[in-house]
Computed example of a mutant assay.
Amino acid sequence: MRLSVLDLVPVRSDQTTGDALAATTSLARVADETGYHRYWLAEHHNMPAVAATNPPLLIALVAGSTRRIRVGSGGVMLPNHAPLVIAEQFALLEAAFPGRIDLGIGRAPGSDPVTSYALRHGGGGVTDDAVAQFPSYVDNVISMMSPGGVGLQVNGRVHALNATPAATSRPDVWLLGSSDYSAQLAASRGLPYVFAHHFSGNGTDQALALYRDGFQPSEELAEPKTFLTVNAVVAEDAEEAEALALPQLQAMVALRTGGTLRPQRLIEDAQSDPIPDAHRPLVEAMRRRWVIGTPAAAAGQLRELAATYGVDEVMVHPVAGARQGTPTHSSPAREETLRLLAKELL
Rank of each mutant, 00 (worst) to 15 (best):
E219Q: 03
P224L: 09
P165S: 09
K225G: 00
L175K: 01
G203P: 13
Y181M: 04
L176D: 08
P165N: 04
L266K: 04
P247D: 14
Q216D: 03
L221I: 05
S182E: 10
A207P: 14
L228D: 09
S182N: 15
Q184I: 10
D213W: 00
F227H: 12
F199M: 08
E220W: 02
D172L: 02
W174L: 07
E219P: 00
E236Y: 11
D237V: 13
L249D: 09
R212C: 14
L261Y: 00
F195E: 02
T168S: 12
L266G: 11
T257G: 11
F195K: 10
S218T: 01
L175T: 08
H198C: 06
N231L: 14
R256F: 15
S179L: 06
L176P: 02
A187T: 15
P263K: 07
A251V: 03
L176F: 02
R170N: 05
G190N: 07
R189L: 03
T226L: 01
S182P: 03
V194C: 08
P224R: 13
T226C: 04
Y211K: 04
D172H: 06
T260Q: 15
T164V: 09
A186T: 10
A166S: 13
F199P: 07
S188F: 02
L185H: 03
L208G: 10
D205K: 12
F215C: 05
A222T: 08
V253Y: 12
A251G: 11
P247L: 12
L261F: 06
E220A: 01
G177S: 08
G190R: 04
A186Q: 04
G177V: 12
V234W: 09
R212T: 15
S218C: 01
L255V: 14
Y211F: 09
S169Y: 07
T168K: 13
M252A: 10
A243Y: 07
Q206S: 15
V253A: 09
H198I: 02
E223M: 03
E239H: 12
E219R: 03
S200P: 00
G201R: 09
A167W: 13
N231P: 03
A238C: 11
Y193G: 02
A167G: 15
T226K: 01
A207W: 10
P217K: 03
L208Y: 15
F215H: 12
A232H: 03
M252D: 09
T226Y: 01
L255N: 07
T260W: 00
A232G: 06
E220F: 05
A186S: 09
I267Q: 08
P217Y: 05
T164E: 11
E220M: 01
H197R: 10
A254H: 14
D172F: 01
Q248C: 13
D205V: 14
A235G: 00
S169Q: 04
A243M: 05
D180Q: 14
A209P: 01
K225V: 06
L191R: 02
G259K: 08
R170A: 11
A187H: 10
P192H: 03
R170Y: 08
M252P: 01
V233L: 09
V233N: 08
E219T: 04
D269C: 02
L249H: 08
L176H: 03
T229P: 06
A238V: 14
V253L: 07
K225R: 13
Q264E: 07
A167V: 09
P165I: 05
E242C: 07
L208Q: 10
